[in-house]
Amino acid sequence: MTDLTQTLAPARPGLAGRLRLALCIFAVLAVVPPLAHALDEPFLIVVATRMMVFAIAALSLDLILGYGAMVSFGHAAYLGLGAYAVAILSRAGIDDLVLQLLAAMAASAVFATVTGAISLRTRGVYFIMITLAFGQMAFFFFVSFSTLGGDDGVALAARSTVLGMPLLQDAPGMFYATLALLVAVFAGLYRLTLSRFGRVLTGTRESALRMQAMGFRPFPYQLTAYVIAGCLCSVAGVMLANQAIYVSPAYMSWHRSGEMMVMLVLGGVGSLTGAMAGALVTIALEEGLARLSEHWRLGFGLILVGVALFSPGGLSGLLRRVGLVRDAK
């Protein structure tokens, strides 16, 4: 009962806390390129760009997983759809980022509408598994797509242009474009989750039965959220392809989907800021540990197990217990 009243209560004090934390993260990110120049470590900009790309992906997953309680194990498919939209369009001579973003989102919307409508017939473990099945279908489709390199993937000729300007060509340009998209996605989702739509979605997460009793049919809300999340994740895919100048089916393997869930759970589910922080921390950990040892997965895995066992609620849970953030959820 307390859950429901908490969720539906307008203007909770904790909202300001997580928003402030998000703004802090953006501010820190904004000074990364000059800092990297000062330290003479240009590699940092590349790593930070990757971190933000996955932050966009994790944010999109948080909408369905955190707010809609739809645990999708096939979300990496949209990352791949975005990346392949770039590969296919640039091969056809269309290099403009805006057009590529629109195409990626359109393709993802179609895929998400069809697979989402089927997946939402199931519940719980079955939902997790059917989304996994659709993710694997997309994965194998592109693995056998031999004109685009199949299993090996395909290198892009160059990064996309933005309305004719070569904004993404250097690392800082790529960085700030990704940051702008990250801020936009965060702001959009923040507004969305506070809107009537967001409240219905959250209400469905708490109890679909009660929402139905109140006269809401959950399905259209859940499906809309599923489609929006897919579209936003494809934005991350477009940026990932541009950052790496390379596209491969590995972007959409089940490992990626699992990793995206891990980011989310690590950061804390259902607060947007947690998803973003989780993605940043996950990629930073991976990159940092990979520099220490080739067996970095051992340490990374141990950290994940440790967090799962000893810190329910991930980083947000930890911060809340330490008292740094009050009611981050």
Binding site: L65, V71, G258, E259, M261, V262, L264, V265, L266, V269, F300, G301, L302, I303, L304, V305, G306, V307, A308, L309, P312, G314
Partner: peptide, 9 residues
């Protein structure tokens, strides 16, 4: 989700 996190680790 916690189970996914731990077993993925």
């Amino acid at each position: 989700l916690d189970q996914v996190l731990a077993t993925f680790g």
